[in-house]
Each structure stands twice: as structure tokens, then as C-alpha cells.
Design a protein around this nucleic acid. Structure first.
Length: 425
RNA sequence: GUGGCGGUAGCUCAACGGUAGAGUCCUGGAUUGUGAUUCCAGUUGUUGCGGGUUCGAAUCCCGUCCGCCACCCCA
């Protein structure tokens, strides 16, 4: 036997026992999205590499070292497995003129790819639900997005997720601040680590969220970004805070929260849990008013967020929720001449009536078929043997309760089945 | 990319230089066609892979792969 192949590192199979959690999660999320008036959009997993270089930014971790990029030798295109999907979504909106008749509320879901070292809550293929409000300029849109997150945590039964909020102003304000920050960092260059020194010129804002204590000391004494914001930016932020307070959504202002992607401006936020180890961010987003123009489209304001499915499901499991398992209503056991045909017919009839029915396959003794019936979790075993066939009946045996089995005429089975299924003790 | 810990039956683990085991699961049986409980029987395997030390390696050493956790960053 040759060596078995394995899944690619950091890319996981989601087996049935785990997948039932995903189905529960998705059912809740989709209902929630529909009730908020968001419509689905689906973009390709592969995009031109240039899309992410321009949207996410050259000096971000994602573009610098985490993208699965390659050259398609068939035609020389440079392609990348999407590391996030806001860029794709905006690209699609521009390409198909989605905003020609007004702003749009959109959502998407699917796998994202980042080449990082895997650890708890971090995988090379991970999955997100993304929500984007395109064409909305005001802080009311920011508030809508944040408040709907809070509603979702409630629906999912999750507590202890806190909101961290910040504003990073306009690109012009950041440019002015950037100059001041670089000047400050240069004065204290001797206290910066290699990483901070490298970023000091390429992306100085990123130095702000360094966790190195010595670097943080320098950051603490740096001028705050807030002092470089104009009235418009401050007003946007103030109104957002008012709307959140009115909606009863608590938050903490986190001046060091700048987010790793270049396209953000004004509002940025993260929802964080303490129960997930080192990777506690469960959802992150913000406003990206410059992205449409940056990608060659007509300027349009926009805001959005993405949430990590693996991390949220981990929280659901940690909260002690039970996944809704849907065992079949019946398992059809059959033996003897002509029994398979009769069993198939019975199963089909019941399925047409809306019941979940498993038909035994693969032969085996009566005993082994009954074992399968029990293992399937079915409420009832339907027994089709020679006796039943002769009598035109089927034996209905409850598997989950101490109730006697009964013979039911085939003609009445479908009609009586709801009653047989529901009966307790 | 860097560091710490770990890989033994499908699963959970024991054996820690001297012939690889238990529980569970799975399969068959306990008088005609009845599951889950009970009893009996049976299969679990190149001890992740490759090399080295040794009379002898699951065990010690080196390499490699994979996993977990952390750094970094984020979902």
C-alpha cells in the first residue's frame, strides 16, 4: 500500500459530527441576514493578485507573506486564492455597476486562504461570513452593522463578546499624522525592535499595535491620532457612539486598534472573546470609503465586516450548546422474497409525505439490520418480512421508548405515520 | 517564518531498553424474525516516516513529516 495522502496543512476536513454545528450556525445566520435586508453575492475564490495588492495594501502581513499566489503558466496571469473577500466584493460591484440604482446591502460566505502557521482558531483555509453595506456614507450605516452583530451574538447564545472601537480618520488626516508619528518614532529609534523599525516608514500606524512592551512605551508617548482628526471625522465618530449608546451596545475605545488592512478609514472595530486562546477576534470590520476609487471605480462610501465561522462555532460549543441533530423518523428493515421492493415502496411513500426514512442496504441478518436501525438514531423501525408481506402489513417498532410494536396495514401507513412518530411513552 | 510539547489498534490510552496490551468500536454467536442492556468468541498494528547507537529500540540519539499550543498577525 502506498503512503496515504493527507489534507494540506492548516486545511481541515469538516466531518459530519462537526458539520451539524455548521448547519445550525448557518441557519441562524441566514435568517438573521434576511431579516436585516442583506442579499447574497458570490464571488470566485481566485482573483488577480493585483486586486489584493491594491486593496489590502503592499505593506500588510497578508500581502507581504500570507497569500497563496502563483502564475498560471497557461496564459501568464498572476492569480491568488482570496485571503479576504471585501476586495472581491467591491471589484464585483464595480464590474457589474451594482450601485447604479442606489446603495446595496450584501453578504457572502466561504473559504479564505492565508499561509500562516496553524494554531487554535487559525487555519490556512478558514471560513467567513462577510457583510458589506455599499454606498452608505453616514455613521448610521456603521451603527447598523455593529448593532446587527450584537443581535447575532444573542441569537447564537453567545455571551462575553466585547466590542473594541476606534476611528482612524481620513486618508489625508492619516497622512499628516503619519508624518508626526514617523518623526516621533525616529527620535526613539533606539528603543524599537527590528519589526517596528522596518514598519516605521512602510506602515507606521502598524507600530501602534505592537505588543512589545518596549515599543509600546514609545507608542504611549507618541501624539494620539485623535488630535489630528478634523471636525468631519470627529463628528462621524461622535454620532456613531451616540447611536450605539442609544441601541444599548456597549463598547470600549481602543486607540491602538488600527486593523491590518490598508483600505479602512474612519470607523474600525473588532468583536473579541477571551475564551478562544490567543486568537480571540471573532469579527472585524470598518469603513472603507476609498476602496471603490482605489480599484478604479466611481468613488463610493462603504462599510462592512467579516466574521470567522470556526471561531464562532468554537464559542457555541464552548457555551455548552447542543447541535440540533436530525435523526431519521424511520429505518426500514426487510428480509425475504420480494421484501426489498415492498420496502422501497414504503420508504418512498413516507418520504413523499415528508418523513425522513432510511432504507436498509447491504443485506445482513435480521439482527444486524436491527442494530443498524438502532445506530441510525431512528425513532421507529419498520419491519417488512415475509409474514408482513403476506398480510399486506408492516410492523412498526418504536426504538426510543418502551411501547409495544404494532402491525399496520400498508394502505393506512402514511395516514397513521404522523401519529406513530409523535407518540411518547 | 521562530519557539515549546507531542505522534502506539478506527477512537481514548498503557507498556518507558528485553516477545506490543486494555477499554471502546466493529464482526459473528447465545434454538425459527427483533435493536439499545447482559454473556461468549474473533480481527485489530511496518509503534508517523527514514537513519543511527545497542546482542536487542515503541522506549535512547539525529533528521524529516504531521499535530497541538504560543510568538507574529488576524477571522
Amino acid at each position: 500500500m502506498s503512503a496515504p495522502l493527507q489534507a494540506v496543512r492548516g486545511m481541515n476536513d469538516i466531518l459530519p459530527a462537526e458539520a451539524c454545528w455548521w448547519l445550525d450556525f448557518e441557519a441562524i445566520v441566514r435568517g438573521w441576514l434576511a431579516r436585516h435586508g442583506y442579499r447574497n453575492i458570490r464571488m470566485p475564490l481566485v482573483e488577480p493578485t493585483q486586486l489584493f495588492r491594491r486593496a489590502v495594501g503592499e505593506s500588510t502581513d497578508i500581502v507581504e507573506k500570507e497569500m497563496y499566489s502563483w502564475r498560471d503558466e497557461l496564459n501568464g496571469e498572476d492569480l491568488t486564492l482570496r485571503p479576504e473577500a471585501t476586495a472581491s466584493c467591491v471589484r464585483a460591484a464595480i464590474e457589474h455597476h451594482l450601485l447604479h440604482d442606489g446603495p446595496k446591502r450584501l453578504w457572502y460566505a466561504g473559504p479564505m486562504y492565508r499561509h500562516e502557521r496553524p494554531q487554535k482558531g487559525r487555519y490556512r483555509q478558514f471560513h467567513q461570513y462577510g457583510v458589506e453595506a455599499l454606498g452608505f456614507a453616514g455613521p448610521d450605516a456603521d451603527a447598523e452593522l455593529i448593532v446587527m452583530c450584537a443581535a447575532l451574538w444573542d441569537e447564537l447564545g453567545l455571551g462575553g463578546i466585547r466590542l473594541e472601537l476606534n476611528t482612524i480618520g481620513s486618508s489625508l488626516e492619516r497622512m499628516r499624522y503619519r508624518a508626526a508619528l514617523i518623526a516621533h518614532l525616529e527620535r526613539h529609534a533606539d528603543q524599537l525592535d527590528a519589526d517596528a523599525k522596518r514598519r516605521m516608514h512602510s506602515n507606521p500606524l502598524r507600530v501602534l499595535d505592537s505588543k512589545n512592551p518596549q515599543v509600546q512605551a514609545v507608542v504611549q508617548s507618541a501624539p494620539p491620532l485623535m488630535e489630528y482628526l478634523g471636525d468631519a471625522s470627529l463628528g462621524h465618530f461622535a454620532e456613531l457612539k451616540r447611536l450605539l449608546a442609544a441601541a444599548g451596545v456597549g463598547y470600549s475605545i481602543s486607540p491602538r486598534l488600527v486593523r491590518g488592512l490598508d483600505y479602512y478609514n474612519l470607523t474600525v472595530f473588532e468583536w473579541v472573546s477571551d475564551r478562544l486562546g490567543a486568537q480571540g477576534t471573532v469579527c472585524g470590520g470598518g469603513r472603507y470609503d476609498g476602496l471603490f476609487e482605489q480599484l478604479g471605480g466611481k468613488p463610493a462610501p462603504a462599510a462592512g465586516f467579516a466574521m470567522g465561522i470556526e471561531r464562532l462555532i468554537a464559542l457555541m460549543q464552548e457555551a455548552g450548546r447542543e447541535p440540533r441533530d436530525a435523526p431519521p423518523d424511520a429505518y426500514v428493515v426487510h428480509q425475504g422474497e420480494g421484501a426489498v421492493q415492498a420496502a422501497l415502496k414504503i420508504a418512498r411513500e413516507l418520504r413523499c409525505a415528508g418523513f425522513a426514512v432510511i432504507q436498509h442496504c447491504g443485506g445482513g441478518s435480521f439482527k444486524s439490520q436491527m442494530k443498524r436501525a438502532d445506530a441510525s438514531g431512528a425513532k421507529l423501525a419498520l419491519i417488512v418480512g415475509e409474514d408482513e408481506l403476506k398480510a399486506g402489513e408492516v410492523t412498526v417498532k418504536p426504538l426510543r421508548e418502551a411501547r409495544a410494536q404494532a402491525r399496520v396495514p400498508l394502505a393506512r401507513l402514511a395516514a397513521e405515520f404522523p401519529h406513530l412518530c409523535k407518540q411518547r411513552t
